[in-house]
């Protein structure tokens, strides 16, 4: 149990370092939903779009290489495809409405004491907790 916390702290530090690189060198906020969403809805164009694409290539490729070399970690994702589709739609619509997700509002927002980031984080954690109560403990979908 405790080793997982240490891995969490180390991995978290690397996530923070990633955000620091993207901010201090590229001058951008490392928000996954914004980076992906701008490519999906076409609001990121030209050089900005290719910069985002390179970010996503790294985000996809390096864990893939680690998984090949050291073995793939278990994701424990539910096998209920309807739940997955509903969750994906909710995450997609919700993060674009809120203009941020766990990385943008959570990591980047809270660290600069942004009120919006803090409020967003409180709401998505509360909704997430409620979601687990309803879908896991009440309905037994997951």
């Amino acid at each position: 149990m405790q080793t997982e916390w240490i891995y969490g702290l180390i991995g978290g530090g690397i996530i923070g370092l990633a955000g620091a690189v993207y901010l201090l060198i590229n001058g951008r906020i490392m928000g996954a939903s914004g980076i992906i969403g701008g490519l999906i809805d076409g609001s990121a164009k030209g050089d900005q779009a290719s910069e985002r694409l390179f970010f996503l290539i790294g985000l996809f490729m390096v864990p893939a290489i680690i998984a090949i070399v050291f073995g793939a970690p278990e994701t424990h994702l539910t096998s209920n495809l309807w739940a997955i589709v509903a969750a994906g739609l909710l995450v997609g619509v919700g993060t674009r409405f809120a203009n941020g997700c766990t990385s943008g509002h959570g990591v980047c927002g809270i660290s600069r004491l942004s009120l919006r980031g803090i409020v967003a984080t409180v709401f998505y954690i509360m909704a997430g907790g409620l979601s687990v109560i309803v879908f896991k403990h009440t309905l037994g979908w997951i």
Binding site: L90, G94, S103, T121, F123, Y124, A127
Partner: peptide
């Protein structure tokens, strides 16, 4: 948005 996102996050355990 944050409420919808949180619901989906809890349902699948995945974020972007």
């Amino acid at each position: 948005g944050s409420t919808l996102f949180g619901m989906g996050w809890g349902l699948a355990g995945l974020c972007p």
